[in-house]
Design a protein around this nucleic acid. Structure first.
Lengths: 193, 193
DNA sequence: CCGGAATTAAAACGTATGTTTTATACATTC
DNA sequence: GAATGTATAAAACATACGTTTTAATTCCGG
C-alpha cells in the first residue's frame, strides 16, 4: 500500500470527531474526498486571481496594466491564503507546494488543470505587459515565477528554520512585495544570444 | 503506518534483485538507506558547486566574479545532473524537488543542512556581486532562485505535460541559460520603498 | 578441505492502512 | 405513529508495510 496521502482516514475522522466509515460513506473513496477538498481550496484562489486581473485591466484601460499589477493579481491570492487564518497555515502551504509535485497523480492533474486554465487567461496580459517577449520565453519564466512563489510559501511555513533576525520580515505584504519585485525583474530581463 | 517514502522496501529489493531483508541487514533501517542515498547524490552536487565557485573566483581575480558566473556555479550542477544519464532523470529530479519540501523529516533536514552549508559559502560571492543589497534581501531572493530552479527541474521531468512546440527547448544548456538570465535580473532588481 | 563469519532465503510478526459489512439510531414523510 | 431513507457505530476484512527471526548458503582465511 503506497502513501497516497500522508494522513490516514482514521486521522481525519478522529480529528473531525466523526465515524471512521463516514468518509467512505459520503465520498465513496479517500481520493474523492481529497479531490473535493482541493477543489474547495484551489477554486476560490483562482477565481480571486481572475477577479484581480479583471480589476487591474479595467483600471488600466486600453494601454493594459503594468507588469507588476498583473503579477500581483497572480501572486497575492496565494500569499494571502498562505498567511491568513489562525492555524492551518502551514498545512495548506505545504499542501499547495507539494501538490504541484507529486502528492497523488489524480490530485496533481486536478490542480495542474485548474492552474493551467488560469495561466492561459494570464498569458495575454503578461505578453501585453512584456512587449517583444516570445511566448516560449514567457512559458519558462512563468515556471520560474511559480517556482519562486510556491517554494517561498512552502519554506515560510516553517519559521523555525529561519534565522531569528529574519522572522520579522515574514508577513504577507512583505513577501508579496519581494516576490513581485523579483519576478518582475526576471520577466523583464532581456533575452541574450 | 505513514508513507515515509512512496517506495517500499519490497519495491527496492525486487528492483535490485536482492532479498527483502538485505536493506535491513546492511543499513539497519529504511531511513538509514535513504539518508545514505541522499548523501551519495547531494554531496557531489555541492562539491561541484563549490569547485565551480572557486574556479570563477580565481578567474575573476580581485574584483570578484560577475553575478551571472556565481549563479551559474550554483545552478549548473543541478541542471546537468537533472539532464544527464540514460534514465533515472525524472526520478532524481522529482526527488530533489520534493526533498526540499517534505519527503521525510530526517531526509529533509539532511538535505537542508548540506544546502545551507553551500549557501553560506555562496552568500559572500553574491553579496560582492550585488553591491548595496542587504543580506536580508538576499536571503529571500535566494529562496526565490532555488524555487525557480527546483520547480523547473521538477516539471521538466514530465515532458508529456509540455506543449509539443516547447519540447525542443528542453535541454540542459537552454534551461540553465534561461534560469541564469531570469534569476540574475531578479537578484539585481532595485529594492522599492 | 573446513570451520567460522558474512550474506542470503524464506517465512513470520506486528501494525497500519482503505474499505466493507452488519446492525443500530435518527430523522423526515406519509 | 409506522415506514422509509439517511447517517452513525463498531467490528471485521483484506492487504501492504517495515522489521525480525530462523535456516540455509556462500565466502574465505587457516
Amino acid at each position: 500500500m503506497r502513501g497516497i496521502e500522508a494522513v490516514s482516514i482514521r486521522d481525519i475522522t478522529k480529528a473531525a470527531r466523526v465515524n471512521l466509515a463516514a468518509i467512505n460513506y459520503h465520498f465513496g473513496t479517500k481520493s474523492a474526498l481529497a479531490a473535493e477538498v482541493f477543489k474547495h481550496c484551489i477554486e476560490p484562489l483562482n477565481v480571486r486571481r481572475l477577479e484581480l486581473l479583471d480589476a487591474v485591466e479595467k483600471k488600466a484601460g486600453d494601454k493594459g496594466p503594468r507588469l507588476e499589477a498583473v503579477l500581483e493579481a497572480m501572486i497575492r491570492p496565494a500569499v494571502e491564503r498562505g498567511f491568513d487564518q489562525e492555524q492551518g497555515e502551514e498545512t495548506f502551504l505545504r499542501l499547495m507546494g507539494r501538490c504541484l509535485s507529486e502528492p497523488n497523480v489524480e490530485i496533481e492533474q486536478l490542480v495542474r488543470a485548474h492552474l493551467e486554465k488560469v495561466i492561459r487567461r494570464f498569458d495575454a496580459a503578461f505578453l501585453r505587459a512584456l512587449p517583444g517577449l516570445e511566448p516560449e520565453e514567457l512559458f519558462w519564466r512563468m515556471k520560474f515565477m511559480f517556482g519562486a512563489l510556491h517554494f517561498s510559501l512552502l519554506t515560510c511555513g516553517k519559521q523555525a528554520n529561519l534565522p531569528p533576525k529574519l522572522r520579522k520580515t515574514l508577513d504577507a505584504e512583505g513577501l508579496l512585495q519581494r516576490l513581485v519585485t523579483f519576478t518582475a525583474a526576471g520577466l523583464q530581463a532581456s533575452v541574450l544570444s
